[in-house]
Amino acid sequence: MSSTEAFSVHLVRECAHRVKYTIDLPKPLSLPQYHKLAQQFSAQLTDAWLPDGHLLFHLRLPEGKGTLSSSATTPTLHVVLSKKEAAALLQAILEALQAALSE
């Protein structure tokens, strides 16, 4: 099984210069897993507590290449990528996710 087949990937929308996908994971990513992804992609990780107590994670890829975001309690990762580099970036993200979740 290739890494791209490990998760369910869904194209949500192609918009302006972005492409949005959702990636369904077996379980929500943990904070250490987010940190590892951030390190791997030289991305900026931020979290936001919403007034209702929910936690949102945002990973901002460098050079405006896109964002990954997810609620801390749901296993769906929302991935918005630069259209030009979407295919390569998506592949790299899927491989990173597989590595992170298999540890």
Partner: peptide, 15 residues
Amino acid sequence: GGIMSSAEWDAVVRP
């Protein structure tokens, strides 16, 4: 539709 397919919706409304 974008709101209903977002991480924010997952966090705030979907539960």
